[in-house]
């Protein structure tokens, strides 16, 4: 099969970009979408044109590196699948496929289809952890975790941090990502001591990064390769409300150690 690719080409962050259309070489329907781009790039390089830059790594749907908005949908046509596990058999002979980068102000473009998602890391630096010193942990079975809580936490923890939720949301909101992180830790007994401080810090950093707000359209959930539920956003909203009402912690009184 052959397809036409309408691909966003942009030299770097500051350059202006444009769509370019390429005719693919002969493809095999069993190729993954990324393998199709590999083949396309071989053809471009042979013709002396710079290959299309795109992000990818594990190619098995777990690392969250691959991105791409394919025909207007992050990660391509299928539900619950990342771009790297999208296959060419999902397209028809002669299709024109529009391939764009994730578009969001907090994800500045690096080149062509590659964007910089460090904003996600910075949100995590703000509070995406349970503070436990290595070696200080009690025996793992000393803190029983109800199976239901562990399972729900795992549902949230599956997030691969790809940013498709941001890419899909009409407001470029990162709420699904942040809520998955907040919920994963907030659902577990181990996460309770820092629960409200964590949600406050992470949401505030999310705001500072310039992501949009949730208007509950559900697009994020619809494109999430791990099908993470919108319910986690509600959970985060609740925790943040409590955090706001609780206010900052009281300053400890008394002097230092003797």
């Amino acid at each position: 099969m052959k397809v036409k690719l309408k691909v966003w080409r942009q030299k770097n962050r500051d350059a202006s970009g444009e769509f370019k259309t390429y005719q693919s070489p002969e493809l095999n329907p069993s190729m993954s979408f990324l393998e199709m781009l590999d083949v396309m790039n071989e053809q471009l390089a042979a013709g002396g044109e710079e290959p299309i830059a795109f992000d990818h790594d594990c190619r098995e749907g777990i690392c969250g590196t691959c991105s791409l908005v394919i025909d207007g949908k992050p990660h391509g046509p299928h539900k619950g699948v990342a771009t790297c596990q999208t296959y060419m058999r999902s397209f028809k002979e002669g299709d024109e496929i529009v391939v764009e980068p994730f578009r969001a102000h907090p994800f500045p473009l690096v080149k062509d289809l590659v964007v910089d998602r460090k904003a996600f890391d910075r949100i995590q630096h703000a509070g995406g952890f349970i503070s436990v010193r290595t070696g200080a942990a009690p025996d793992a079975n000393s803190i029983p975790v109800p199976k239901e809580a562990a399972d729900l936490a795992m549902d949230a923890a599956q997030c691969i941090g790809c940013g498709a939720c941001v890419a899909a949301c009409k407001n470029a909101s990162a709420m699904l990502f942040v809520s998955a992180k907040v919920s994963h830790l907030g659902l577990l007994p181990q996460g309770q001591p820092e629960r409200y401080r964590r949600v406050k810090a992470m949401v505030d950093q999310m705001d500072a990064e310039g992501f949009g707000n949730c208007t509950v359209t559900g697009s994020c959930e619809a494109v999430c390769p791990k099908e993470i539920s919108l319910d986690f956003i509600a959970r985060m909203n609740r925790d943040y409300l409590v955090a706001l009402l609780k206010g900052d912690a009281k300053k400890p009184s008394g002097g230092g150690a003797g």
Partner: peptide, 22 residues
């Protein structure tokens, strides 16, 4: 054995039995 303690404490959602144990 220490690894499991460390990971459980930092919130790794290991599979659990109904009683809440690993």
């Amino acid at each position: 054995v220490d690894i499991i303690d460390q990971c459980a404490a930092q919130g790794v959602p290991f599979a659990r039995e109904y009683g809440g144990l690993l």
